[in-house]
């Protein structure tokens, strides 16, 4: 966050994503960990780096310690204080002994995804397809002249 160059920010974010994937695997959530590795480290990081490369030449040096930066830091500290207070005072995080069960295997996740959550799965697949098509349409701007240019050239 405090790094100056945009590419360094993106690389640090990728490292953070990879660390989160390792944490998921450590927690016994293989599905979430591997999905994190594929989606974030594999796809979104590359996407961000490509966006940075395509929008080159806008490396405006900005200082973190400006008045608005101070306000943002204070706000973030307040958010963290509220969250930490909520975590520490809630009774959920210090439970009575929950019987240790074996972690859910991949198989049960797949079965539940295909039975109970089949409708959300289909809806989200449709949404993802629509979003991809929309992204392609947005990014691949056609080379047609803009309408005001047409009017200007016809006026001349």
């Amino acid at each position: 966050m405090t790094l100056r160059r945009l590419v360094h920010c993106a690389l640090a974010l990728t490292v953070a994503f990879a660390g989160l994937a390792a944490l998921y695997l450590n927690l016994g959530a293989e599905f979430a960990g591997l999905a994190q590795l594929l989606v974030y480290v594999g796809a979104i990081a590359i996407l961000i780096v490509f966006a940075i490369l395509l929008t080159r030449g806008d490396d405006t040096a900005e200082s973190v310690f400006s008045p608005s930066g101070l306000a943002g830091a204070i706000l973030a500290a307040a958010v963290f204080a509220v969250l930490a207070w909520a975590v520490e005072t809630s009774g959920i995080v210090h439970p009575a002994a929950i019987p240790a069960a074996p972690p859910e295997p991949m198989r049960s996740i797949g079965l539940i995804l295909m039975h109970r959550y089949i409708l959300p799965l289909e809806v989200i697949a449709l949404m993802l397809t629509a979003a991809m098509i929309g992204a392609v349409i947005l990014a691949l701007r056609e080379k047609r002249p803009q309408p005001e240019q047409i009017q200007r050239s016809s006026a001349q």
Binding site: M1, L6, A10, I48, A51, I52, T55, D58, T60, E62, V64, S68, G69, A71, G72, A73, L75, A76, V79
Partner: peptide
């Protein structure tokens, strides 16, 4: 949250 409020670059 801090980066969202501090940084000015949209990426």
């Amino acid at each position: 949250v801090a980066a969202f409020f501090i940084k000015r670059n949209i990426i």
